[in-house]
Design a protein around this nucleic acid. Structure first.
Lengths: 408, 408
DNA sequence: AGTAATTGTTGTTCGGAAGAACGAAAGGCG
DNA sequence: CGCCTTTCGTTCTTCCGAACAACAATTACT
């Protein structure tokens, strides 16, 4: 779950910090869990768990709950650990091509409040979008209890995000270059809290791994069809980020060097065959509907010949991906969801035809288990992350009574 | 450095185990290191380090050494921690297409003894190869001090290895399917010790990361030209294995669908353009020399036009890889080493032409820092791994006086 | 009702990291 | 050359927190 900083020893405080964070991670994952389960899962003593739970309760994060329902055999029922009302929450932002979604999300991945608004995709300046997003954030923060601490903001962006500082290097469909969106939003809000920014497909992968179609699966890929084609990779239970954070740009895998020109400057990238513009052209979809390609595809009840060919191309590209990453699961998000429901047979056939036998035999293609909210929940996850690394410190940095601060 | 099992808490013994293992890992990496450096790197107290070092000394793993040379400023010089003679060692096996190399490797990656012998690549049955390898192992074990404990055996294989049990699923150039090579070697030796088996490119990546061109670089790829084309990926400092352990099969990325047939059944895999057979054909190298393609290429002093085209194709393929994984370093091993020395300009140009700007700007192509021994040292690394996870337990399982056991 | 099984609670033990005090070994300086 | 400063090893003590033991609480089963 956690990857330690290399080479460090474990000192006394680190033990407590890690155990407290791990316990909270379990509660976050399960929502409602018994102390007995925590004891067996964490491999610690009953009394140790009791101490940790007591600390979380005194921090206002969890509260004692009734025993969790189904039991087997005799014995005293184990007390439940549940998430507190007025517990910590985060703001999740999903920046799409034509709209921004903002939600207040509590522990357990509970969407407490949600709004969205159209944004000016093409020529919209970043500060304008930032102002719109800030307004949406104000809206969802209004509804939060004053006592609840705000841990941070997580933002999903359809583009390349530098992991060292969250700078948006390139978001082709927003036409952004080197935008420090975190600073923009914080300035518009007048707040100073941690902002985590990441690529939309990466966050889709994270969310599907945590609470979607990929629960318990430590090697999965979320392939996102969202005008451009991107992917998020979870390997060994961790996000594959790469040196700069740009890993997963699978839309620009070489696919057909005799193919069409891609906006990246090359010929025949995979995206030129299975990207939104290519599909829109194949089904004679008007250009202004490309951003809603998922809905358009959902309107089909039978695949056309062109769509079947696209499905095969999708499968062929996935074969390269399966060979390279050997995932157990590939989740098809964005408009690929609708496409896969139409031409799943062709996709699977194309994959089976081109992948190596060994990696092929253990892989499954699946639809997202969280529907459209994958990415938003992923944004919430990265915002929560500091809380699981060091609960006490993260709560110390969190903001309480955000509403009045926003007013002032 | 170490990835904990997910969800577990840290109990008392785990702390000591982790600290002892981490300290030993540092000594293994540096070879000779001062206690003061260990104190600052691990973030623990002086007295704690002293206790850990004392335990390692009593285990016979390290011994007290003179202060490490260069110092700055005043103060008492810090005692050195050095590797003990008669310390633990492993057997590393590198199974090539036409020869097997076997070495006795001590902590610090010190090759203490090394042999190799030709093996019957094409039709050689696995048990025959296993017998040859066992004989080589007997040879290098002969030279070991009787008191030194043997921790395990690490084996590198040019093929797909299942990570759950080390089964060799497919080694095309050995013509092996589903071979349990570990059991075969152990049976031939009459011993029972841990055997770790992995793909050659994976181990090359590991070794270059640990002590080669990629020291300190947590995101790198080792691309191996070794008849077939494979790759090992280190991401976030850890091996990218995938669900079954087959990740990194980049030789079968789709490259040119109008291209030549590949032995995997598809058309135009990258391997059909930059694989050994393709290159051999391009330079009119006789078929029986393909296994020595590296040496053959080393004989060129000027690239031919065909080789320059191959270099460009290599660069184009690497562009897809750089887009997908965003490494900071790509190490070109096997015959790619010789090829890169000849046509490095074309490779770099091909890469720069096709990769996305963001991942491109931070990536470097490099030659292996360990030459031909990358893979062998990687095999030693995986054999040592249990020692760093739990030194006391691993030494408890290790064999002492192996020579007499082999005789009996 | 009685027993076995499981868990919460409380007080104690114990392992090991941290900290303080002191001596040892170097460099720098007059 | 002696003294001071700096840094480190050594030893002893402290302290944190996980483990453990004993007992009470709560269920299922007979």
């Amino acid at each position: 779950m956690s990857r330690q900083r290399a080479g460090l020893g474990t000192n006394q405080e680190a033990v407590r910090r890690h155990n407290l964070g791990t316990l909270l991670r379990h509660v976050h994952r399960a929502g409602h869990i018994s102390r007995a389960e925590l004891t067996s899962m964490m491999g610690l003593n009953r009394s140790t768990i009791a101490g940790l739970v007591a600390e979380l309760e005194s921090l206002g994060v969890t509260e004692r709950a009734l025993p969790v329902g189904a039991r087997q055999g005799a014995g005293r029922p184990s007390a439940g650990v549940a998430l507190a009302d007025n517990g910590p929450y985060v703001i999740a932002v999903d920046l799409g091509v034509d709209r921004a979604a903002v939600a207040r999300v509590g522990l357990g991945g509970v969407v407490q409040q949600r709004t969205e608004a159209p944004i000016d995709g093409g020529g919209g300046e970043a500060w304008q979008v930032g102002a719109s997003v800030a307004a949406l954030i104000r809206g969802v923060v209004e509804g939060a209890p004053a006592a609840a601490p705000l841990v941070g903001i997580g933002v999903s962006v359809p583009g390349l995000v530098r992991r060292s500082d969250g700078l948006i290097r390139l978001a082709p469909n927003l036409e952004w270059h080197d935008v420090s969106f975190g600073s923009i939003v914080l300035a518009a809000l007048g707040l100073d809290i941690p902002v985590s920014i990441a690529n939309d497909a990466d966050l889709g992968a994270l969310a599907e791994h945590q609470r979607g179609a990929g629960v318990g699966i430590d090697d999965l890929i979320y392939v996102s069809g969202n005008v451009g084609v991107g992917a998020g990779v979870i390997t060994g239970g961790h996000r594959l980020q790469g040196a700069g954070g740009y890993a997963g740009e699978l839309g620009h895998l070489r696919f057909n060097p005799q193919g069409r020109p891609c906006h990246c400057g090359n010929l025949g990238c995979w995206e030129t065959e299975v990207g939104a513009h290519a599909i829109a052209e194949a089904i004679h979809c008007p250009a202004d509907k490309v951003a809603q390609l998922g809905e358009v595809l959902g309107g089909f009840d039978k695949p056309t010949r062109e769509l079947r060919a696209t499905g095969t191309a999708l499968g062929h590209g996935l074969a390269s991906i399966v060979n390279a990453f050997n995932p157990r699961l590939v989740v098809l998000g964005g408009y690929f969801r609708s496409l896969f429901m139409l031409v799943g047979a062709e996709v699977n056939a194309g994959l089976a035809d081109r992948a190596l036998p060994a990696p092929l035999e253990s892989v499954t293609l699946a639809l997202p288990g969280l529907g459209e909210d994958s990415v938003l929940l992923g944004a919430a996850e990265i915002a929560f992350e500091p809380l699981f690394v060091d609960p006490v410190a993260a709560l110390g940095n969190a903001l309480v009574d955000v509403r009045s601060r926003l007013a002032g």
